[in-house]
Design a protein around this nucleic acid. Structure first.
Length: 487
RNA sequence: GCUCCGGUAGUGUAGUCCGGCCAAUCAUUCCGGCCUUUCGAGCCGAAGACUCGGGUUCGAAUCCCGACCGGAGCACCA
């Protein structure tokens, strides 16, 4: 399949990729739920793997129990959201399960005189490093380093007393490369019960990632541009260990228009403080929120794939995603009336009847039925346009003439749709006075009003509230709660 | 301060490696019009870009240099 397969629109062929031999990984820190940003990594990696019939690994880089402390629930959230996106990883790896592996290679590097235990404070080391000067510990013998390393492992040193550094090139022109740290001491327990306080020496990202990418047989890495230096740093490890470095690809920063800057930690605090209802609050750019709002996984996939893998930073508009989603949802979403900020309109000279609007304007999806007896609700915004004498069409019901606005009253003036064309009558939607209360939660706030009763049959479905927009029906009881998708 | 990366229409994207077929692709957005018992969908049409300045060349969005702008790294974060 992949031999002659056209590259998916937006994704260029991978350099040096052989069908059936591609191994890629998606490596999140589970310190929060997947966001639209992380989704790009999930989708693009999985798409490439599909294209080349390769293998996809999800690796949780959870080696910081302190600063970017993992959230226990987030591991499952990632897996769950992947599944929703149609991504099934071939393998799941948790870094905190594999600490002994990292220790093994650390020991080897110390023995080879490629790593040393450093007792400098971070400030002292920074000064030396900036001056391209080696620190006093750089020349310690491998034997002595081994002893000190064992002391680190056994807890004889406190956090910040010692770190293990890789010997790179202390005179390297790029200061980011010079003798960077690969292990540090953290005397805080890990949130995973299987790990807990088992380790006090934790690897840093570039080391953990370097070892894992080799161990897992990764052939192609896609990572953010912010991690561009990782390759230069990790290359030293690969050289010392005699390994071959995977092919790399980088992408730029993504900002979403309409969403402010969100870091996982500030979000977490805002949620704890009750500013948001949770990780799936419709105002948030998390995948869980998108899902709850009725964004289709295929729309997200398409959107992400069409962005491609460029190194330019971008700031993209949700409109593009919404447009993609609308195309998928418009043909299947049943139509209903929902009146926000309702006001009552009394209609004289009319008998009780049942309106039977179609569920969908094109597809043959049957009809709704709404009983009306001389009183309906209309939107405040529509009411404001009305004057005594205005003729309006109540959509799929009949035509009325406004007889009074102070108490809002009208009289029935006919059923004929043709009249409306002659008169260019405005068509507005309405709701029965004895409908069901509806609350819509949207990124722009809450809308409350009345809807027709049959909305209650659409639990968990995407519907379109006419002249309002698409919504996902989130819960149904004495009141309907809907999440706004988009217009 | 040192180092690295990027800069095509409002927003993304194709093309840049291997200069000509690019008076520059596609999508979205915006603006007109048609259609429609939704301000949705659909249809038709239009607008809109190679950051700037030099250089190489018969020819540059594509190569080189410089400037400007933007992003990132120099963490005992990922």
């Amino acid at each position: 399949m992949c031999a002659k397969k056209e590259p998916v629109k937006g994704l260029k062929p991978l350099d040096g990729a052989e069908c059936g031999k591609v191994v890629m990984r998606f490596a999140p820190n589970p310190n929060g739920p997947p966001t639209l940003g992380s989704t790009r990594g999930i989708v693009v990696n999985s798409e490439y793997v599909k294209m080349y019939e390769g293998k996809l690994i999800i690796r949780f880089d959870d080696t910081d129990p302190q600063t970017k402390r993992p959230m226990l629930e987030a591991y499952d959230w990632y897996l769950d959201d992947c599944k929703w996106l149609g991504v099934v990883p071939d393998q799941v790896v948790i870094a905190s399960d594999r600490i002994p592996l990292y220790y093994k290679y650390a020991r080897q590097l110390i023995e080879q005189n490629n790593a040393y235990v450093c007792f400098c404070t971070s400030e002292d080391f920074k000064h030396l490093k900036d001056a391209k000067e080696p620190c006093p510990h750089r020349n310690t013998s491998p034997e002595a380093n081994l002893i000190q390393w064992d002391k680190m492992l056994s807890g004889e040193y406190e956090a910040k007393d010692a770190v293990l550094r890789l010997k790179t090139d202390i005179r390297h022109k790029d200061p980011a490369i010079r003798d960077y740290g690969i292990f540090r001491i953290i005397k805080e327990s890990h949130p995973r019960p299987e790990v807990n306080d088992r380790y006090i020496v934790w690897p840093l990202l570039d080391f953990e990632g370097a070892i894992e990418d080799h161990e897992l047989g990764t052939t192609h890495i896609i990572r953010g541009k912010d991690l561009m230096d990782s390759e230069k740093r990790q290359m030293y490890i690969y050289k010392y260990l005699g390994w071959e470095y995977p092919k790399t690809l980088h992408w730029g920063r993504v900002k979403m228009h309409g969403f402010g800057k969100f870091s996982t930690s500030t979000l977490r605090r805002a949620i704890e403080e009750g500013e948001y209802s949770g990780w799936d609050d419709p105002r948030l750019p998390t995948l869980r929120a998108m899902r709850r709002r009725g964004i289709q996984p295929q729309a997200i996939r398409k959107f992400m794939i069409e962005m491609g893998v460029g190194e330019t930073d971008m700031s993209i508009s949700m409109d593009t995603l919404y447009a993609e989603n609308r195309k998928m949802v418009d043909p299947i979403a049943n139509r209903y009336f929902f009146v926000w900020d309702p006001v009552e309109l009394t209609i004289a000279d009319v008998e009780a009847c049942t309106a039977r609007p179609p569920k969908h304007p094109t597809g043959d999806k049957g009809h709704r039925s709404i009983d009306v007896a001389g009183r309906v609700l209309i939107c405040m915004d529509d009411m404001k346009q009305l004057k005594t004498g205005s003729h309006i069409r109540l959509k799929d019901l009949y035509n009325v003439e406004i007889t009074s606005v102070a108490p809002l009253r009208a009289k029935y003036i006919g059923d004929e749709v043709t009249d409306l064309k002659k008169e260019r009558m405005k068509i507005i939607h309405w709701a029965p006075v004895d409908g069901i209360p509806v609350k819509v939660l949207s990124p722009d706030g809450e809308f409350k009003g009345m809807g027709e009763k049959m909305i209650a049959t659409e639990l968990d479905k995407i519907v379109q509230f006419e002249r309002f927009g698409f919504c996902r029906i989130d819960s149904v009881s004495s009141e309907i709660v809907a999440y706004f998708t988009h217009r």
